[in-house]
């Protein structure tokens, strides 16, 4: 039995390694192209490895695009959205998990139901609403709609429910009000969950495309994905620089990947999808 399993697992290892190499290859191709010169990529037969590593493509990105401005916009929007969602989600999560009032669970269920509303239904009316508020092409327009989400409230409610009751009771005996209870007792105990939410929201914000596309009209307000898309349509031939830009745009989310992997590996109600 043991020997048979062993033999099988060797074959499995081999297939798995092959599949993972196949999956990883396009990403490697992005990096390899980013390190080639633009004359080298237009040579046949295709050369897999660059003859000479051309790191200059990575510096060329910063002058080919208003890259610094785009990066700044993306980082700023992501930070505001992450901070906002952490605050609103933990506040709402606390209320839906811990505060008793009539109809609470129905209200929560209704809120969750709205999570099922596809985003594209919101795009057209939101555009005209934000136009009325004078928020088109502003940071407000890019961030405000994303400062709270049913997803975040759901996640944090789950986290609060998992906390032991004794924690609050002890705090209540010590005369702690709800705000201080949350800020000093409960939230520190939920660092893990908050971290996971932050990673999710960051990726969601960093990758956002449709909304910024509709919302922004000037290059100075664009975020990175938009800048990249416009660069591609404007300079379709310059693949090495474009791929270098693509690497730089993906870098921050790649750093988050390990944290995400841990969250996805948990079976049961705690595992949740990547919001996009």
């Amino acid at each position: 039995m043991a020997a048979r399993c062993r033999r099988k697992s060797w074959a499995g290892d081999f297939i798995l390694a092959g599949l993972i190499a196949l999956m990883g290859f396009p990403l490697l191709w992005m990096l390899l192209t980013a390190l080639k010169s633009s004359s080298e990529i237009y040579k046949l037969p295709v050369r897999i490895l660059p003859r000479k590593l051309k790191w200059g493509n990575f510096t060329a990105v910063w002058s080919a695009l208003p890259f610094a401005r785009l990066y700044l916009n993306s980082v700023f929007v992501a930070l505001v959205v992450v901070a906002g969602q952490l605050l609103t989600s933990s506040a709402a999560g606390y209320v839906f998990a811990k505060v008793r009032f009539p109809g609470r669970d129905y209200i929560f269920a209704f809120y969750m139901l709205t999570y099922c509303i596809p985003d594209h239904v919101l795009i057209i009316p939101s555009f005209f609403l934000l136009n009325k508020f004078g928020l088109l092409n502003t940071y407000g327009g890019l961030t405000l709609p994303f400062l709270a989400s049913p997803f975040g409230a759901f996640l944090m409610r789950q986290q609060f429910l998992d906390l032991p009751r004794e924690l609050e009771e002890a705090a209540a005996i010590d005369g702690c009000g709800p705000l201080r209870l949350i800020a000093y007792v409960l939230l520190p105990a939920l660092r893990q969950g908050l971290g996971a939410l932050a990673v999710y929201v960051f990726i969601f914000s960093w990758n956002g495309f449709f909304w910024p596309l509709i919302m922004t009209s000037s290059a100075s307000m664009q975020t990175l994905p938009l800048g990249l898309a416009f660069f591609q349509s404007a300079e379709a031939e310059n693949w090495p620089v474009l791929m270098a830009a693509a690497c730089l745009v993906s870098a921050p989310v790649m750093l988050a990947v390990n944290r995400l992997q841990k969250a996805l590996a948990e079976p049961g109600p705690k595992s949740f999808p990547v919001p996009r």
């Binding site: 990403l27 495309f209 990175l224 591609q232 693509a246 988050a256 990947v257 996805l264």
Partner: peptide, 14 residues
């Protein structure tokens, strides 16, 4: 996991 979390614009140009 990486292909599904990098911005799709990156995937699209790649």
């Amino acid at each position: 996991l990486i292909p599904s979390i990098v911005p799709f614009v990156v995937i699209a140009s790649l």
